[in-house]
Amino acid sequence: MNAIENTNHGGNGGHGGNGAGGHGGYNFAYLDEQSKRMIRRAILKAVAIPGYQVPFGSREMPLPYGWGTGGIQVTASIIGRDDVLKVIDQGADDTTNAVSIRKFFVRTAGIATTEETGQATIIQTRHRIPEQSLLPGQILVYQVPIPEPLRWLEARETETRKMHGLADYGIMHVKLYEDIAKYGHIETSYDYPVRVNGRYLTAPSPIPKFDNPKMNDMPALQLFGAGREKRIYAIPPHTRVESLDFDDHPFEVQTWSEVCALCGADDTYLDEVIMDDRGTSMFVCSDTAHCAERRAAGHRGPDGDAAPTGLVP
């Protein structure tokens, strides 16, 4: 939890306003120190009760709800001046929303940023976990739209909180049963529910289920922020994370018969890119930084030379 310690010298009110990295009239990393402390307290509680959704006084951020206000508040509360931030959306550093959030922190906190997974101390993500294994000391901050995994089965917060309190999760397996009865296998492909540390049923956020196994026993700290729903939860390093399944219908991840057209990887999550109006498509790594690193190391896919490194239009 380096970053949390870092914030001690990252700002304690004295840096407000025009301190280095601050942005005219706003505190370091936008949020005032009181709000940051409140959020850090929620984070500490969340770490202490893995997978439990801690309500917190979510602030209105200058980005819209649904754009990652929860993740931004978590990052803003833990980031210090020495941190190096990576922001991805759909696995890529250069999608518009990732760019916008990275710019926000550069503008309000003046911190260093990177696209290299291994170089980052904090990685804020929407919808993916990087392919490269994360390291001890790193923090992965997820943006979460709907933190309640039971929401589609039970609309009422009062009821779902009771279900969590009593670990009354049979209904979740009813849903999986129903999938198998109907389709022969479990139908959920993203935001696939997990059980954290054998206790709380938890939403992994809309990452593809392909990424679920990476959550288990991860050396990095995983923090989840849901701004609109005002919940924070966490998975401490090296925590058991199980994807729900049946003994005779075990959890499985997506596979492709193709490899990445650019770097040739056969073990990554692939995005499908439509090439023309005749249905031709190619498959490329969704994690662009990972793909670029592989190509820099000399790996080539079937279409590897067609796309120059850097992928500039």
Binding site: Y177, E178, D247, D248
Partner: peptide, 16 residues
């Protein structure tokens, strides 16, 4: 079927 199976799953049955 899911209605009938719910109680079993609620108490931990995990074999479809």
């Amino acid at each position: 079927g899911a209605n009938v199976g719910e109680r079993l799953m609620a108490v931990g049955a995990r074999h479809y």
